[in-house]
Design a binder for these strands. Structure first.
Lengths: 170, 170
DNA sequence: TTAAACTTTCAGAAATTACTGAAACATCAG
DNA sequence: CTGATGTTTCAGTAATTTCTGAAAGTTTAA
C-alpha cells in the first residue's frame, strides 16, 4: 500500500509505481495475475505497466520450466535501479530540452529582444550540458568510488584545493 | 512557443512552464495581463501560475512608482534557478519517500517476507539519504567550486586516490 | 467612504491521462 | 490442426488535472 504511494512520485504513474514496489518487496518473481490480484487492477493494465517498466529497464522476465507463464522481477540491484531511473529521467526531461535549445540557438536573432532571449537560452543550454556531462562521467565511475566521493561530501573542495597547490608547486 | 513546450518537462504543468519561459526570455518584468495575452490564457490561470512559481521560489514581484500593477520577473540567476528547481523537486519527490520508508522501518517484521521487504526498504532508504545528503553538501559549496568540480568530472577519482596515498604515507 | 484598478478564489467545464475488459494475437502440447 | 493457456492491444469509460470566468477580495487615491 505505502509502496504504491511513493511510486507515483518517481516519474511513472500510480499503478506502475505500485507494481514496481510490489516486485521489489517480493523476493520471488511474480506473474501478471499475481500482480493484478495483489493490486486490484485489470490484467490489461498490468501488461501496459510491465511494458512501461521495461522501457525504463527496471524489470526482467523469467520463465520457469514446465510453465508457460512469465515471471517478473526487478532488474538489477537497488543501486542500478537508482542510476537507471536517473538516466531515463534525464533522457526524457533534459535531452529534449537541450536539443530544442540548440535548434533555437541556430536561428539568427532578428532584434534586440531576441538577442537577449538567446543569451538566456545559451546560459540554460550550457548549464544543462555541463550537468548532464558531469552526471554521465559520475555514472561511469564504479559504485564504490562514487560512494567514497559522496561520503567525502563538500570535503571534496579541500582535496581540490590541495591538488591545485600541488600542481602549482611543480 | 518552444519555451512553453520544454517547461512542461520540469515538474510543473504546461502553462506554468510557459509562463516561466516567457519571464526568463523577457528582459523587463511583465504584468499579469501581459502574460495572459502573450500566452492566451485566462487572468485567473496566470494568478494561480504565479502562485505556483512563487512556491518554487522562481519569480519575484516588483512594483513601479505611480502604478498599482504587479510586475513579475524571474528570481535569481539561471544557476539559482537550477538549484532551486533541484531543491524543490527533492522536497516534493524524495523527502516524503524518505519519511515513509523511515516509518515503515520502525515496524517489527511479522514474518520472513516482511524481513526481506524491510531489507530492501532499508537499502533504498540509505541510498536516498546518502544522495540527498551529498546534494545538500554540494549546494553549500560556492558555484565556482562546484563548476570546477564538474569540469573535473570523473577525473576526481584520481584526485581522491592521490589524497589516499598522501594520507597513507603519513 | 467611495470607486477605480487591480488580484485572488473557486465552482464548474474542458482537456488530459489512466484503466478496464473484451477481442485479437501468440505459443505450445497432444 | 486444435484447444488450452497464456499475453497484448485498444476503443470506450473513468478519474484526474488543468483552465476559465465571474464573483469576492484588496488596496489606494481622492
Amino acid at each position: 500500500m505505502h509502496c504504491g504511494e511513493m511510486g507515483s512520485r518517481w516519474g511513472f504513474n500510480r499503478t506502475v509505481g505500485q507494481m514496481y514496489g510490489l516486485l521489489i518487496i517480493h523476493e520471488d518473481a511474480l506473474t501478471a495475475i499475481d500482480i493484478s490480484e495483489a493490486l486490484n487492477i485489470s490484467r490489461g493494465n498490468v501488461s501496459m505497466g510491465i511494458k512501461e517498466l521495461q522501457s525504463w529497464r527496471l524489470v526482467q522476465v523469467q520463465h520457469k520450466p514446465k510453465d508457460r507463464k512469465e515471471y517478473y522481477s526487478p532488474a538489477g540491484s537497488i543501486w542500478e535501479m537508482a542510476t537507471r531511473v536517473f538516466e531515463e529521467r534525464r533522457k526524457r526531461e533534459v535531452d529534449p530540452t537541450l536539443s530544442l535549445l540548440r535548434d533555437n540557438l541556430l536561428d539568427e536573432p532578428a532584434n534586440q529582444k531576441e538577442v537577449y532571449a538567446q543569451e538566456k537560452m545559451h546560459e540554460i543550454h550550457d548549464l544543462l550540458e555541463t550537468g548532464t556531462h558531469w552526471a554521465s562521467e559520475l555514472q561511469s565511475m564504479s559504485p564504490d568510488k562514487l560512494k567514497t566521493l559522496m561520503k567525502l561530501g563538500s570535503g571534496v573542495s579541500k582535496v581540490i584545493n590541495f591538488k591545485d597547490k600541488f600542481i602549482n608547486k611543480n
